[in-house]
């Protein structure tokens, strides 16, 4: 029974992601970009979930790990001939090193994890509001430094000329890796210990769980996933420092909260649902025909709708669309299956 439940918990988000990817194969190439972005968003939101969902501590800083991952993958995979034009002040070894697509993604994940570990070592002592403000500080610092420090990246320039390798396949595989890692973590003893600290920190500490240690493990792991997602992002679109700032922080947090922050299923559902709404509205801002009528929304409608959705969900259904639960087989169905087996 336990196995069956575990299998469903993993299969439901995996199937949803595969379905989204399959949908991407049958649509036009412009719509396909939205589908690929959706899959990358799934990876980011799953990274957020690994920490926020399991620990119950809000982090506004995860987009900085995405940014660091994007910087790593972008700088290392850009062809050496293009680097001087876009990044004239790049430090020597970054200028001379060029790696392929897959190694660049692996390095993005590694650097994301390392950065999260360094940041987490002091910050994981904080809870609640202080953690929120401090992680916000991390986002501000990272954004500020990446924007101006031209030795480690393009500064105010945009990452053009990075090989655009993130297609449907790569994004789908990336999202699946994120989901499998998150699932493995939440079924491991570490995941259980961290969720125990979320439910009751005092009780968890009383049975010997280190709240600090468990949060640090989750923070580092989610930093790795976020870094990977950043690598996927930079191989998808020409990004710059502004791409990884308040807007992305807001929209990914909204996805997590709307889906339901305390379950992997919620994270994936939220990412897919909000991305779908968001992509549709982004299209509509350029004018789209719906049922034979042209819908042309002014630019900015997207965030109004997503912001209103998020506020509504928080007020009416604070646990999110999925109620913050993993997908379960309905009680009636389970009973009928059980009786059949025991008969």
């Amino acid at each position: 029974m336990r196995r069956a439940r575990a299998a469903l918990e993993l299969l439901a988000p995996v199937l949803l992601v595969v379905l989204v990817a399959l949908f991407g194969t049958i649509v036009s190439s412009s719509t396909q970009t939205y589908v690929v972005t959706t899959l990358v968003n799934v990876a980011i939101v799953v990274a957020l979930y690994v920490f926020i969902g399991n620990s119950g501590v809000v982090s506004f800083g995860h987009i900085s790990f995405v940014a660091v991952g994007a910087w790593t993958a972008g700088i290392l995979s850009m062809p050496a001939s293009e680097k001087p034009a876009i990044m004239p002040n790049l430090a020597g070894f970054l200028r001379d090193t060029t790696v392929g697509n897959v190694p660049s993604l692996a390095l993005a994940a590694a650097v994301g994890a390392l950065y999260a570990l360094i940041v987490g070592l002091p910050l994981m002592r904080l809870s609640g509001l202080a953690a929120g403000i401090a992680t916000f500080g991390v986002l501000e610092i990272t954004h500020n430094v990446l924007r101006y420090w031209e030795k480690i990246g393009p500064g105010l320039n945009t990452f053009s000329a990075v090989p655009e390798t993130t297609g449907l396949l790569q994004a789908c595989v990336g999202a699946l890796i994120a989901i499998v890692v998150a699932f493995g973590y939440q079924w491991s003893r570490y995941g259980r210990m961290l969720r125990a600290t979320r439910e009751d920190p005092a009780a968890a500490r009383a049975v010997g769980v280190s709240v600090y240690g468990q949060r640090l493990v989750a923070f580092t792991l989610s930093g790795a996933i976020a870094g990977l997602a950043g690598g996927l992002y930079v191989h998808l679109l020409p990004v710059n420092a502004e791409s990884f700032y308040l807007d992305l922080t807001f929209i990914t947090l909204a996805m997590l909260v709307i889906g339901g922050a305390t379950s992997l299923w919620g994270a994936v559902v939220g990412a897919v649902a909000v991305s779908a709404v968001d992509s549709f509205l982004a299209e509509a801002e350029n004018g789209v025909s719906v049922f034979g009528r042209t819908l042309d929304l002014p630019s900015g409608t997207r965030i109004v709708v997503v912001g209103a959705l998020m506020a509504l969900v928080l007020i009416l259904r604070p646990a999110g669309l999925t109620g913050g639960r993993e997908l379960r087989v309905p009680q009636a169905l389970r009973r009928s299956v059980l009786t059949k087996f025991s008969a």
Binding site: V58, G128, F250, A254, V257, V304, M310, A311
Partner: peptide, 15 residues
């Protein structure tokens, strides 16, 4: 909880 309210006001700010 304070954290949920912070996220909510974050949403209102963007809205």
């Amino acid at each position: 909880t304070p954290a949920v309210m912070l996220v909510a006001t974050f949403a209102v700010a963007f809205l």
